[in-house]
C-alpha cells in the first residue's frame, strides 16, 4: 500500500477532470460569451472610438478628438438639447403615470374580485400589440378632425385637442399611449402584491387598522422593491422611445416629438454621420447610467428590503 502516491494520483485525476469540466462549462456558455463579445463589448468599444471621429460609414474615419461632443454641448447642433428636453419631458410624464396607473389596477385586482383573470388579460392585451399597429390605431383615434377621442370629448361638451398634431400636446399624447401599454408593469406589481404575507395584514386587522392604514403601512412599503424595479426599467425604456415618433409624427410638429433616439437615428441613417451619432449614443448611455445611479442612491431611503432589520 502506498497511500501517498495513490492520493496524488487521485488528485491529479480530479485536477484533470476539473480542468475538463472548466472547459466544458465554457463550451456550453460559448454562445453567450461570443454574443457578449461580438454584439455588446466589441460594438461598445468600436462605438466609443467612432465617437471621436468624423465618419460617414463608407470613408475612413478621421480622428477629430472631442469635436462631436463639443458640437452637441455647445448647442451648435441645436437638436441635441431639443431632443434631450423632449425625451426628459416624456420620461417625466410617462414613467410616474405608468407606475401609478398600473399599481392602482394591480391593487384593485388583488382584492377579492370577480372576473380577476379576465380583467388581467384585458389590461395586459395592449402590450402585445406590435408598435406599428399601436401607432396606426392611435393615429386614427387621435385624429383631430375625425378621431374617436375628440368625438368623445365633444360629446361631453369639452373642446377637442390637436393631440399628436399639436406642438404642446404631442408629448402628453404619446405618454397617454404609453399608459395604454403598461399591462406588463401591472402584472409585475400583481405578482409582488401576492407575495406579501397575509400575516402582516392580520396583525393590523387585530389592531383595528383601516384599509388605508394597511395600504400605507404594509402594502406600499412591501412593494417598494418592485416599484424601484419598475421605475428603473421605465426610465431606461422611456429614454429609448423611437418607433411611435417615427411612424406617427416623424418627430414633428416642429421637432416637438424629436425624441433622443430619433435624433440619433437621423444622424446615423439619414445624414450618414456615424461618428456624431456614436457620440450621441454614448451621451445617452451616460445619462441613463447617471439617472439609474441617482435612483439607486435614493433607494436606500425609500426601498424596503426584507431581512434588513436582521442586520
Amino acid at each position: 500500500m502506498e497511500p501517498v502516491s495513490s492520493l496524488s494520483v487521485n488528485r491529479a485525476k480530479t485536477k484533470r477532470s476539473s480542468y475538463r469540466n472548466e472547459l466544458l462549462g465554457i463550451l456550453f456558455a460559448l454562445p453567450a460569451i461570443l454574443g457578449l463579445l461580438i454584439f455588446t463589448l466589441g460594438p461598445m468599444i468600436y462605438s466609443l472610438y467612432m465617437s471621436f471621429t468624423d465618419y460617414s460609414g463608407s470613408n475612413s474615419p478621421t480622428f477629430i478628438g472631442l469635436d462631436n461632443y463639443t458640437r452637441m454641448f455647445s448647442g451648435e447642433d441645436q437638436y441635441f438639447y431639443k431632443s434631450l428636453g423632449v425625451t426628459l419631458y416624456f420620461v417625466v410624464l410617462s414613467v410616474p403615470t405608468g407606475i401609478i396607473y398600473s399599481f392602482l389596477l394591480a391593487i384593485l385586482l388583488n382584492r377579492n374580485i370577480k372576473g380577476k383573470a379576465i380583467f388581467r388579460t384585458v389590461f395586459y392585451l395592449p402590450s402585445i400589440v406590435p408598435i406599428i399597429a399601436i401607432s396606426f390605431i392611435w393615429l386614427w383615434l387621435l385624429n383631430p378632425d375625425l378621431g374617436l377621442a375628440n368625438e368623445m370629448l365633444r360629446a361631453i361638451g369639452l373642446p377637442g385637442s390637436q393631440w399628436i398634431f399639436g406642438e404642446k400636446s404631442v408629448v402628453p399624447s404619446l405618454a397617454l399611449m404609453n399608459l395604454w401599454t403598461t399591462g406588463g408593469t401591472m402584472i409585475i406589481f400583481l405578482a409582488g402584491l401576492q407575495d406579501i404575507p397575509r400575516s402582516l395584514y392580520e396583525a393590523i386587522e387585530i389592531d383595528g387598522g383601516s384599509k388605508l392604514h394597511k395600504l400605507r403601512n404594509i402594502t406600499i412599503p412591501m412593494m417598494t422593491p418592485t416599484i424601484f424595479f419598475n421605475l428603473i426599467m421605465g426610465i431606461i425604456n422611456g429614454f429609448q422611445v423611437f418607433s411611435q415618433a417615427y411612424v406617427m409624427t416623424s418627430g414633428g410638429p416642429n421637432n416637438a416629438s424629436l425624441f433622443y433616439v430619433f435624433y440619433l437615428y437621423r444622424e446615423a441613417f439619414q445624414f450618414s454621420r456615424m461618428g456624431s451619432a456614436s457620440a450621441i449614443a454614448w451621451v445617452l448611455f451616460i445619462i441613463i447610467m447617471l439617472l439609474t445611479y441617482m435612483v439607486f442612491k435614493t433607494s436606500k431611503k425609500w426601498v424596503y428590503y426584507e431581512g434588513d432589520e436582521a442586520r
Binding site: 466589441g42 460594438p43 461598445m44 446615423a268 451619432a277 449614443a281 445617452l284 448611455f285
Partner: peptide
Amino acid sequence: LPYAVTLIP
C-alpha cells in the same frame, strides 16, 4: 445598455 449604443457599430 441602450440598444442605441450598439446599433450603429
